[in-house]
């Protein structure tokens, strides 16, 4: 049986751990709130952009912009979005597994796969598995900025247009609820587009094809921004859930340890009394 002092020491250390997990939980909650607000603020832009894109595609007739056209796939790139830090439950592991599965699926079709790692965790994971990684980006802000998204998007677009990749996929954790995420694969390039929007006679300045040239890079930037923001929201959510669970577990452990602490303290007292009584009896006898 561990001594009273040992138990006391464990209680102390678990209390410390609990303090840390509680603080992390609080921090993640506030970051989650900020990220969610950013996602909500970006919605009007996204909606409008999609609307206009649909309209141009619908009215421009034949589409032959290189960013829209599917071509035979020989090389593909997977952008893997993970966090820079752990302690977020299954957040990083699940999305990494998904990316690897997707890569495997493509490789079976004879397609070369290259990775672009966003976030330290994914980078380390891919490096350990000696995967072909052409680019790594880390230190994404807790609430992603548009400039960061632009950097990733620019990279993907220029390599795509130069023919280095024929398809660019993005793997990230989709935000479902605060405590629920799902790893998903989304196609970034060529742009999966939908014809839509009300038919309306628009004047184009310059011609529709050229407007498309301006619009599509913006669309990609925004899409990446959207996914990045969502991935970050998921990360904060996952970390919050993990830390809530950790705090609860610590609480449970503390209860148990306090009980056995009291028990062994009581046992020590009983023992001491019985020793004294035994000693007194011996003297009398």
């Amino acid at each position: 049986m561990p001594s009273v002092r040992d138990i006391k020491r464990r209680i102390k250390s678990i209390q410390n751990i609990q303090q840390i997990t509680k603080a992390m939980k609080m921090v993640s909650a506030s970051k989650l709130r900020r990220t969610q607000a950013a996602a909500v603020n970006s919605r009007p832009y996204t909606e409008k952009l999609e609307e206009v894109l649909g309209r141009i595609v619908a009215s421009a007739g034949e589409i032959n912009h290189p960013m829209l056209v599917e071509r035979p796939v020989k090389n593909a790139a997977i952008i893997l979005i993970t966090g820079d830090k752990g302690l977020a439950g299954g957040y990083n592991a699940n999305v990494q597994k998904k990316a690897l599965m997707e890569a495997h699926r493509l490789e079976e079709q004879g397609i070369n796969v290259e990775f672009i790692a966003v976030g330290n965790k994914g980078r380390d994971y891919l490096r350990r598995r000696k995967k072909n990684m052409s680019m790594e980006i880390s230190g994404i802000n807790d609430v992603p900025t548009f400039a960061e998204a632009q950097r990733i998007a620019k990279l993907a677009v220029s390599n795509f247009l130069q023919g280095q990749y024929d398809r660019v996929l993005l793997v990230y954790q989709e935000f479902i609820t605060t405590v629920q995420q799902r790893p998903v694969v989304k196609q970034l390039l060529p742009i999966p587009y939908a014809k839509g929007g009300e038919e309306k006679e628009y004047l184009y300045e310059p011609a529709p094809q050229e407007v498309l040239t301006i619009l599509l890079p913006q669309y990609i930037n925004n899409t990446v921004f959207h996914y990045l923001t969502e991935a970050k929201a998921s990360e904060h959510g996952a970390r919050m859930a993990a830390m809530t669970a950790a705090t609860e577990n610590a609480e449970e452990m503390l209860d148990y340890l306090t009980l056995s602490y009291n028990r062994s303290r009581q046992a020590a007292i009983t023992r001491e009394i019985s020793e004294i009584v035994g000693g007194a009896n011996a003297l009398q006898g």
Partner: peptide, 19 residues
């Protein structure tokens, strides 16, 4: 500032998309 130069828009303008 449109791509082809400055462009003025007044109320009741025809539908337009410009860079």
């Amino acid at each position: 500032p449109a791509t082809e130069g400055y462009l003025g828009v007044l109320p009741n303008h025809a539908p337009l998309i410009t860079g």
